[in-house]
């Protein structure tokens, strides 16, 4: 500021060169913040994990070798790099456990995402079509569960779903069943827990997409001879697709790596990749293999998403 103060004030609309350069630098800084964030909190940890995945397990502190010794300088690091091995990745292909865990996780995530979409869509639709003055309250109700700890909410489901739980007592009281249902410790309980926990992540983007939709489009469709149900599939649903895609990503990705819900609500016989990772890390204390499992998991998720986004972009460019 002191520099520009001494200079004659440039006419409005024309910035002095120094001020311009300063603005440029400031803009650069603003643009850089998210990149620095990504670098520090995503890329750096990721490369540490990748590095560990190329190491060998050892009874030491930390429990793998080689460990980068910065005192050795560049040549020391190079010596360490020469010790890197691809064995951990090869190992993952040798035991069917790993790809089966990945597949099970992907399957559970896929089924959950579809279930959540089916449950969330009518809710989001109802919210978007509710009277304007009600919408903030409805939105609040969707967000409200976040005010309670995630773990407590999952524990609450144990109380509902267990043999002597609220659900069974209610159904027995109704006379619908005469013996308590075994829901806890089954995949059903896992799906219920996942659908419940991730529902808001689907509702919010769907609501955002549906709320900005112009309702006269539906009138136009009706006017052109389209009954309401068809109009939903031809107009409403295609226009909400960006919300559907965003919601599915928001749900699918974390569910693939989900650990807590299957651990608390599920049985012992469903092995998801989160559990396999846990076993490698904690039971086998094999950080390198655990890291390799994590790296592959990330690639499985990131590659299709990047591909999908590229396709979207290409399509958008083609249309232009």
């Amino acid at each position: 500021m002191a520099v520009t103060d001494t200079q004659p004030t440039p006419p409005p609309g024309i910035a002095a060169p120094a001020a311009l350069a300063k603005r440029g630098r400031l803009r650069w800084l603003v643009v850089a913040i998210p990149y620095v964030w990504m670098l520090l909190l995503f890329l750096v940890p990721f490369f540490i994990v990748v590095k560990i995945s190329f190491s060998t397990t050892a009874i030491a502190l930390p429990p793998y070798t080689p460990v980068f010794d910065l005192s050795g300088g560049l040549s020391g690091i190079w010596d360490s790099v020469k010790e890197f091995t691809f064995d951990n990745y090869v190992f993952l292909t040798e035991d069917s456990l790993y790809w089966r865990s990945y597949l099970t996780s992907l399957r559970i995530a896929f089924v959950s995402t579809v279930l959540i979409l089916i449950v969330a869509y009518p809710i989001a639709y109802g919210m978007a079509r509710a009277r304007k003055e009600w919408r903030p309250s409805l939105l609040m109700l969707v967000i409200l569960p976040f005010w309670t700890s995630f773990l407590i909410r999952v524990y609450a489901w144990i109380g509902i779903l267990k043999q002597e739980g609220l659900l069974n007592q209610f159904l027995l009281w109704l006379g619908v069943i005469d013996k308590p249902l075994v829901i806890m410790s089954t995949d059903w309980a896992v799906y219920i827990g996942i659908v419940y926990s991730y529902l808001p992540f689907m509702i919010l983007p769907l609501y955002a997409a549906l709320e900005k939709m112009d309702e006269t489009l539906l009138e136009a469709a009706a006017d052109l001879g389209c009954p309401p149900i068809q109009a939903f599939w031809k107009i409403t649903f295609p226009l909400s697709l960006p919300g559907v895609v965003a919601g599915c990503f928001l749900v699918f990705i974390p569910v693939v790596g989900e650990f807590v819900i299957p651990d608390l609500l599920g049985g012992s016989n469903t092995i998801m990749i989160g559990r396999t990772l846990w076993n490698e890390f904690f039971n086998n204390r094999d950080w390198p293999v655990a890291s390799a499992v994590a790296v592959i998991l990330l690639l499985i998720l990131v590659i299709p998403i990047v591909y999908f986004q590229n396709q979207q972009q290409k399509e958008a460019e083609k249309a232009r």
Binding site: D214, T216, E219, A221, A222, D223, L224, C226, P227, I235
Partner: peptide, 16 residues
């Protein structure tokens, strides 16, 4: 509306 022999041009055009 979807069974009426009328068509409407909307103020906002309401193009899909």
């Amino acid at each position: 509306p979807y069974r009426r022999p009328t068509n409407m041009m909307f103020q906002s055009y309401a193009l899909f």
